[in-house]
């Protein structure tokens, strides 16, 4: 009787250990795989952001059309031909400047609500036609 109980305890401990080891190793493996997937996705999206396409007269890189912001100003970034005159106009502000390189960046104030900003590039080479982009940004004070 005692011998049989001892055998039952031995096999119970043995099987319990085997199952526990398998469970722990599986959970560890699963956790590692999930974390790895997120890392890959995050790093994979980075290069696309810096990819500047071939220059047309003007390209707006930032902000995106119909972006919602919670600040009363934004930084407008884009690309155009070097030496172009950039004119930005909205009901809130007018800005005019000449670009010193192909990339431009300027702060622009926003009014509460919808902001329709006309951004026009007049190329230095006057054989190229001016090009206008309309950018809509929402400054919403959601509190």
């Amino acid at each position: 009787m005692k011998k049989e109980i001892g055998i039952a305890i031995f096999f119970g401990v043995l099987l319990g250990l085997i199952v526990a080891i398998v469970m722990v190793s599986q959970v560890r493996k699963l956790g590692g795989q999930k974390a790895g997937t997120i890392q890959t996705k995050t790093s994979g999206s980075q290069p696309a952001k810096n990819n500047i396409s071939a220059l047309s007269v003007i390209e707006i890189k930032e902000p995106k059309e119909k972006d919602i912001v919670s600040k009363n100003s934004i930084t407008i970034k884009g690309t155009t031909q070097k030496g172009s005159l950039i004119v930005m106009q909205s009901p809130a502000r007018d800005v005019a400047f000449r670009t010193e390189s192909e990339i431009f960046s300027t702060d622009f104030p926003l009014a509460l609500g919808e902001n329709v900003i006309a951004i026009t590039a007049y190329p230095k080479d006057q054989k190229s036609r001016p090009q206008e982009k309309i950018l809509t940004v929402y400054y919403l004070d959601e509190q």
Binding site: I5, A8, I9, F11, G12, V13, L15, G16, L17, V19, A20, I21, M23, V24
Partner: peptide
Amino acid sequence: VFVGVFIFTISTF
């Protein structure tokens, strides 16, 4: 006895 020891071992380990 077997089942009891089995469950106890898993949870403890």
